[in-house]
Computed example of a mutant assay.
Amino acid sequence: MKLGEWQMAGNLGAAETSGAGRPLAIEARGLVKRFDGFTAVDGVDIAVPEGAIYGILGPNGAGKTTTLRMLLGIIDPDEGLRRVLGHDRPHEISHAIGYLPEERGLYPAMKTYEAIGFLGALRGLPLAEGQRRGKALLEEHGLGYAIERQIRQLSKGMAQQVQLLGTLVHEPRLVVFDEPFSGLDALNQGKLERMIRALAAKGTTVIFSTHVIAHAERLCDDVAIIAGGKVPFAGPVDVARDRIRPQVRLETRASDGPWRAALPADVRHEGAFWFFSLPESGIEPLLRALIEGEAGILSLSIERAGLHDAFVAIAGEAAARALEEGNGEEGR
């Protein structure tokens, strides 16, 4: 559907809600973007409830940044529909949105609080108020000692924190982070995770892109998995993980006996342990067979699949390898 067809089809209803019954902060349908004949984004559908923490997960080059820029109105899709905070033209409500781009950039001669105030002014906040809030934010986040420092005097990580505070200084209803954890050390990544949770606790909608699965698994209510410009999955993290059956690890005293016939077909034996997928019938019938067959259960644990395993199952091995390669490049 072309953008021009939206009015003909009828605007997306403001009362539309997610599965949890919350209104949608962002809805996109069939987004397509081409550059010089190359399709960077190919039919993306996304729905982000208000107050959610939503992750767009995929390797570098998957189309994450292009998708975010279309959602924000920085670029227009060639096809598809989008609505942000109830508006068809996201750039017209930029005062309600905070955006941290992947490409960081601050004026090096500005002092930290001036840079924060300047970024707030770009979103409609009076400059003096933005600078006042900037000083308060720097103090609140342990950077009070750097209030009078110029950006050029900061480390890369500190400058990134200043730009992050500039993204939030105007108290937006929606915050969009593009690879926000890139370049941060482990300590500051933890601080950012806590900040994201605090924003959501206040009702702010947070959407961020990442190629690091651990951040999405710890933070997100819902994720969109993107690979090759397509979204093969968008929904709750738990639903993604449930694409793979839980795995059972069993340790027995006996190494053989009639009980072995009860083990699933995918069982493998490694050392003292048996590994297999949880049977569809559940663990109880298997436990009964093990006990009656005198297997001698020494230990038994059931592990639910992680988001990484779900990503591999949904997006494929090639996308998973690209994701790992991106993680390795960031670590170097």
Score class of each variant (00 low, 15 high):
4 G>F: 10
5 E>L: 13
12 L>V: 15
12 L>P: 09
14 A>I: 12
14 A>P: 13
15 A>N: 13
15 A>V: 12
16 E>D: 14
19 G>H: 13
20 A>E: 15
21 G>M: 10
22 R>I: 06
27 E>Q: 14
28 A>H: 08
28 A>D: 00
32 V>I: 11
33 K>Q: 06
33 K>S: 00
34 R>C: 06
40 A>V: 04
40 A>N: 02
40 A>M: 00
41 V>W: 00
48 V>Q: 08
51 G>R: 10
53 I>Q: 08
54 Y>N: 09
55 G>R: 07
56 I>Y: 00
57 L>N: 04
57 L>A: 05
57 L>Q: 05
57 L>V: 15
60 N>E: 11
61 G>E: 01
62 A>H: 05
66 T>K: 03
69 R>K: 15
71 L>C: 03
75 I>E: 00
76 D>R: 13
76 D>K: 12
77 P>K: 01
80 G>T: 06
81 L>C: 08
81 L>M: 14
81 L>N: 09
82 R>S: 03
90 P>T: 01
91 H>I: 12
92 E>P: 02
92 E>A: 12
95 H>G: 14
103 E>A: 15
106 L>T: 09
107 Y>H: 14
110 M>P: 08
114 E>M: 07
117 G>Y: 03
119 L>K: 06
120 G>T: 08
120 G>Y: 09
123 R>H: 15
126 P>D: 08
128 A>P: 05
130 G>L: 05
132 R>C: 05
136 A>T: 10
138 L>W: 07
138 L>N: 10
140 E>D: 10
142 G>W: 07
144 G>V: 11
144 G>W: 11
146 A>L: 14
146 A>S: 07
153 Q>A: 13
160 Q>K: 09
161 Q>S: 11
161 Q>D: 04
167 T>N: 04
170 H>S: 07
170 H>L: 05
171 E>C: 02
172 P>H: 06
175 V>H: 04
176 V>I: 13
176 V>P: 04
185 D>G: 07
186 A>S: 11
188 N>R: 12
190 G>E: 15
195 M>S: 08
199 L>P: 05
206 V>A: 11
207 I>T: 11
211 H>I: 12
212 V>R: 12
213 I>E: 06
217 E>P: 05
222 D>E: 15
225 I>T: 07
226 I>N: 02
228 G>V: 03
228 G>M: 01
228 G>D: 06
231 V>H: 00
231 V>S: 09
234 A>R: 05
234 A>S: 14
238 D>T: 13
240 A>G: 09
242 D>G: 12
245 R>M: 08
247 Q>G: 07
248 V>E: 04
248 V>Y: 05
249 R>C: 09
251 E>W: 11
251 E>H: 07
255 S>Y: 02
255 S>F: 02
256 D>I: 00
259 W>P: 00
260 R>G: 00
265 A>P: 01
267 V>K: 09
271 G>A: 10
272 A>K: 12
272 A>M: 07
273 F>Y: 14
274 W>Y: 14
275 F>G: 08
283 I>G: 04
283 I>H: 03
286 L>Q: 01
288 R>D: 11
290 L>F: 03
290 L>Q: 04
292 E>Y: 01
292 E>C: 00
294 E>Q: 15
294 E>S: 13
295 A>T: 03
296 G>Q: 06
296 G>I: 01
297 I>W: 02
303 E>Q: 14
305 A>Q: 10
311 F>A: 02
312 V>E: 03
312 V>S: 02
321 R>G: 04
322 A>P: 01
323 L>W: 06
323 L>G: 08
326 G>I: 10
326 G>K: 10
